[in-house]
Each structure stands twice: as structure tokens, then as C-alpha cells.
């Protein structure tokens, strides 16, 4: 009998516990140094927004957190364990606790919305009870306001709907940490705002810690407890959205002006 993957509740939960600890990581692709000595700590229940222009290495940072990429230097610790030292089993267990929302939503386009949502339940959590699976799928789809789309194919959905379903598919396994890769890119301002508010609501509902990679200032304002600004592979400033917006630092201010 296959062992059901245990998650949620295995870790000792303390309010100020650092769940993601990035220590001095650097990453290069050929001659292109994408990350230069980056450090970041995320506490339990905290929403950290990493703000920066496209192509600055923001996505690379979160790919290192789930072990899709390994840093050339430095370490990434999640729940106190070094990601690069993890074996296949440990990495799989980690990935059940860390949700990753891709820029495109990354829905499996040969499956319906229902099958997309069932996939992590049956393959990762090894759930077998059909009634329980249905109930969980419907609950999470209702949470993102797309219960009507349950039997649609991804090709029948708009960009915003795809992101909502992507978010639902990630949240369905109830991860403790959420990583959002440009969640509002390519969406109109109204849908972007809806997605940002949805992220905030889901964070409150499921009590997740989040890292939100974006260059959308409104998304950063709505979702971020703390904002980190990234420029040329380095973090140049950190603080609340309002603090950074009124910063004396010319580079930080100019950055706000450039991206708004």
C-alpha cells in the first residue's frame, strides 16, 4: 500500500519562524551573472513581494527555493533544511509544502479544469476517496470563483481564469509557502487587481507565507507585507510599500517612477 504523503502540521509552527532563508546566493548562466549575493528571510505568515524589472533574476530566486535550479554559491533553506542537499524523497516532500504559481498558470492543457485540480490530489497526496476529492476540488474552485468552469478545458478559459485555476490547483494541496511568479503579468488592470486581492484572500484563508515576484506596483501594494526591490541581480532596498515609495534614495525612487 502506498504511503500517503504527510504534510501540514509536521513542522513545529511558531509565529516568527523563518520558513525560507536565502543566504548569499549567486547564480550565473554562462557569462550572465543573474543573482549576485542575494539574501532574504521570509517568516511564517508573511507576504514578501520581490519587485523588479523583467529579466533581473527574480524568477530564478524562487526556482532555487523549490530545487528547480541550484545556486552556484550560497544556500537556500526551507523549514531549516538546505534544498540543495535534499534527496528525491525529501524534495518531493518539500514540494508538497511549497506551492508554485507559474506566470502562465501552466495548466495541463490535455485535461479539464477538474482533472487539473484532481491531479495533485491523486498523484501527490495519493487520495483515493472520490467524494473527498470532489469536495476538495469544488471547495477550492469556489474559493477562486470558478465553480462553473469545472468541466471546461484550459483552452476555453481567459488569461485571468487560467491564473485563478492555476492558483486553485496550487492551493488545493494546502501548501505552507506560496511562490507566485508574476501573477498579474499579461492581465488587464481590473483582472490584475482581482488576482491580487485573491492572493491576499487565499493567504488569509490558508495562512500561507508567500513570495510574490512581480513588476506590477498595484499587486505589490495590495499583497505585500514587505517589499524587496531587485535591480541588476541585487536587492537594493527593503521595507513596506509606503516606506519605499517615499524613500530618499534616488535609485529606489527612480525605480518606482520607472515601473509605475
Amino acid at each position: 500500500m502506498e504511503e500517503q504523503v504527510k504534510h501540514n502540521g509536521e513542522q513545529k509552527r511558531t509565529p516568527n519562524e523563518v520558513v525560507v532563508d536565502i543566504e548569499h546566493i549567486s547564480k550565473s548562466f554562462g557569462d550572465n551573472e543573474v543573482l549576485k549575493d542575494i539574501s532574504l528571510k521570509v517568516k511564517r505568515g508573511e507576504n514578501v513581494v520581490v519587485l523588479g524589472k523583467s529579466g533581473q533574476g527574480k524568477s530564478v530566486t524562487i526556482q532555487c527555493i523549490v530545487g528547480l535550479l541550484n545556486p552556484d554559491e550560497g544556500v537556500v533553506k526551507v523549514f531549516g533544511d538546505v534544498v540543495a542537499d535534499m534527496g528525491d524523497k525529501q524534495l518531493k516532500a518539500l514540494r508538497t509544502k511549497v506551492g508554485f504559481l507559474f506566470q502562465s498558470g501552466a495548466l495541463y492543457d490535455s485535461m479539464t479544469v477538474r482533472e487539473n485540480l484532481e491531479f495533485p490530489l491523486t498523484r501527490v497526496l495519493k487520495m483515493k476517496d472520490k467524494a473527498e476529492i470532489d469536495q476538495r476540488v469544488e471547495e477550492v474552485l469556489e474559493g477562486v470563483g470558478l465553480l462553473d468552469a469545472i468541466d471546461k478545458m484550459p483552452s476555453d478559459l481567459s488569461g485571468g481564469m487560467r491564473k485563478r485555476v492555476g492558483l486553485a490547483r496550487t492551493m488545493i494541496v494546502k501548501p505552507e509557502i506560496m511562490l507566485y511568479d508574476e501573477p498579474t503579468t499579461g492581465l488587464d488592470p481590473i483582472t490584475s487587481r482581482e488576482i491580487s486581492e485573491l492572493i491576499l484572500n487565499m493567504q488569509k484563508k490558508y495562512k500561507t507565507s508567500s513570495i510574490i515576484i512581480t513588476h506590477d506596483m498595484e499587486c505589490a501594494k495590495i499583497t505585500g507585507d514587505r517589499v524587496v526591490i531587485m535591480n541588476d541581480g541585487e536587492y537594493i532596498a527593503e521595507g513596506s510599500f509606503d516606506e519605499l515609495q517615499s524613500s530618499d534614495d534616488e535609485l529606489v525612487r527612480s525605480f518606482f517612477n520607472e515601473t509605475t
Partner: peptide, 10 residues
């Protein structure tokens, strides 16, 4: 990114 999504979901 569907393959990456599958992989990071565990």
C-alpha cells in the same frame, strides 16, 4: 511550463 509545474507540485 507544464512539465515544471508537474515537477514542483511533487
Amino acid at each position: 511550463e507544464q512539465i515544471d509545474a508537474m515537477e514542483v507540485s511533487g
